[in-house]
Design a protein around this nucleic acid. Structure first.
Lengths: 149, 149
DNA sequence: AGCCAATTATTGACAGAGTCCAGAATTATG
DNA sequence: CATAATTCTGGACTCTGTCAATAATTGGCT
């Protein structure tokens, strides 16, 4: 639904540009994409974009909460479509594959820290690290790159 | 206890060097420090270190689980002393101050994802984002730098 | 103590991700 | 259509972190 995206942009006070629409489209096609991957997808889609345009769009869309940015350790930032629900991520240490996980405990559990030290908490970010189904067989055979050992 | 650190290093098969001891000392003095801050502290302590030596030491110590590395979104990696217990962190969006939080739910709750998608999970990393007590008054008055708005 | 082999530290170059800036092009609006 | 504002382009630049070759230390042994 391309028209939909256009409306979404306008509703948030953003101008509608080919680049932004394409960025949005790219995120639908491939969730958990890096800025670079998005740039490539956009290029395939509309011919050419500057890196800056991609970063600008991603930044703007993130600010407006139309997309979400996650920044796992040791990897560039990833962007995803799915916003509004407080879901988390599992990342494979072997291949880097990232998947969504719903929150372990009921609804908005994750906003509860035992002792918040007086902070006013507005978000809980949870990243699970492990081995994905595809890599499990391999990691059984060889310890793999668990760390750069 | 400087002697203690030396023993700790040797027990883990590492040579004892002035740089490593000083890095360990720096982490005791200032938990949640960046590699750069640690380098500075070490320099004040023993005169001079190369950036590389600091990264090497931190990497090695992290591998041996003598220290822990946390990599919050939008900030360089932080290192801390406190290992062995599964505790998490709160970070202030305004000033970046980082504090420890004990796990919200009992003991090892955080390793349970509702649906693990077949992953074998070995670690859960939890970061709470919010506003620290010091910044709360300010953020009430002015929205502050919540994002680069 | 003094020496040797192995481990560490230093130095300098380099890579990836992201940001900043100024001018050119595009967009929404009257 | 014309205007003002916003957005895009392209290039330079910063910040973390890593690599590789050479020099210095450490720890065990005599």
């Amino acid at each position: 639904m391309p028209a939909n995206s256009a409306i979404l942009l306008r509703e948030n006070g953003l101008q509608v540009t080919a680049q932004r629409l394409s960025v949005l489209r790219a995120l639908t096609v491939r969730p958990h994409a890096t800025a670079d991957e998005i740039a490539e997808l956009v290029r395939e889609d509309i011919g050419t974009v500057s890196r800056q345009a991609v970063y600008d769009s991603l930044g703007l869309l993130t600010d407006k909460c139309l997309i979400r940015r996650i920044q796992p350790a040791g990897s560039p930032a990833l962007y995803e479509d799915r916003v509004g629900d407080n879901h988390h991520h599992v990342i494979c240490r072997q291949c880097g594959k990232t998947s969504d996980v719903d929150c372990a405990i009921d609804d908005t559990p994750c906003l509860t820290a035992a002792d918040d030290s007086g902070y006013e908490i507005d978000e809980a970010e949870v990243i699970f690290w492990g081995t994905c189904p595809d890599c499990l067989p391999m990691s059984a055979a060889a310890p793999a790159i668990k760390k750069k050992s």
